[in-house]
Design a protein around this nucleic acid. Sequence first.
DNA 1: TCACTCAAAGTGATTAGATGACTTAAACAC
DNA 2: GTGTTTAAGTCATCTAATCACTTTGAGTGA
Lengths: 227, 227
Amino acid sequence: MPSTAGLVERLTREIVDTIRTENLQPGQTLPSAKVLAARFEVTVPTVREALRRLEATGSVELKHGSGTYVREAINRRILDNPHYVPVDLAAAVELLDARIAIEPGIAELAATVQEPDAVSSMESALDNALQVETAVPAGHFHVELARASGNRALHEMLVSLLAIHSRTQQAARTSYDRLRDHDEHADILDAIRRGDGFEASHRTRKHLEAIKTAVLAGWADEEGPQR
Amino acid sequence: MPSTAGLVERLTREIVDTIRTENLQPGQTLPSAKVLAARFEVTVPTVREALRRLEATGSVELKHGSGTYVREAINRRILDNPHYVPVDLAAAVELLDARIAIEPGIAELAATVQEPDAVSSMESALDNALQVETAVPAGHFHVELARASGNRALHEMLVSLLAIHSRTQQAARTSYDRLRDHDEHADILDAIRRGDGFEASHRTRKHLEAIKTAVLAGWADEEGPQR
DNA sequence: TCACTCAAAGTGATTAGATGACTTAAACAC
DNA sequence: GTGTTTAAGTCATCTAATCACTTTGAGTGA
């Protein structure tokens, strides 16, 4: 027996290996499916199945008529499930509970590490938040906070959590007071810059708990009367 | 223009929808690719590309000659990247740092929730750990701890972290003292059963920090002399 | 010279049909 | 009954072709 794994799975790994050994960076294109097929001595449909696997995890992107591009997620360990997952309010609250459980610890670590690039990103996220319609993705501040911890796994974790969160229509409805959000973020950032891990942790927790309260209240306003 | 998304992506969603509406549970089989092709009015290769996407995220499994089966991960939000990611010791330490940042908070939540089923699983994980070669996956205790929090996102997060961790050959080399591991786990479980969140959090942190120390020491033993 | 048009080449998207390999279970022989 | 054989169903892979989209650059006109 040659190998227990199917041809497609092996091919998928070989393509990833190729990307790594040739040091292809996100944004660059892979050889065409035809070329890959010839190189690995398989047919085009087989290559396409392998590429679909990589596409599902965000490692590559297939652009019709243009080419196959390497994407950022090829370097990620933690991902969010890209396929349809039903999301209701209970799930949204569950996500917030998860953030309440982990983000204080991340903030504490961020206070001791203070990854410079990420800290300045937190500032700009702070500034932009007050501008209306700046197209700054919600939660940007929190993602940068995780990045400030200097730990890629934690960063990816928060990116994933917020990606899932953004799919929740319910969450979008709840407009946490913009000004209050900004002030609390500023307080957290202040603690981090001072290197005060304890305070950063505490303020992050309080901040998220306040958001949860607001979400639950917003829910009561919309859904409550119908009952 | 009918839709911006490609046919395969739409088809993938439709298949997931079918699984949900027909309430197919993990372990059950999907209709054959031929049947799916007829139902959605596409050809077999297109169906296969969609199934490969779902396969990559662990939502389904294609068994040669048998059928296509629904798998557990279809209900997961957080996943680990199934494709090759280079893993060295620095990455292993980074994962431990991530666990140190988040697991205390999870333990604290677990102490207040105490999901009964998971708590008893923690006990058996404790018992089995002392038996040699019980084939209990490393980290089982910690996964059950996360499950005891009653928060699925946290549970999935720890499953993912440990899945990545298990791919690290380096981590396997470091044999944290079995007895000490057991005792520290027992202490954590004790605090959780008492509902003492503060103590559960504190003990979990100390436990993981001790493991990190052991990993670094083991690394120094093996790699240090060469320098 | 500049800007616009559009035709051609390259690439992915999808289809069609066929063959091979594996699994399962029913039919059969003992 | 038990074990083997057979057949049907399924995934795996291939070959071959057509369609659709993007990009590029040559050609055209102002």
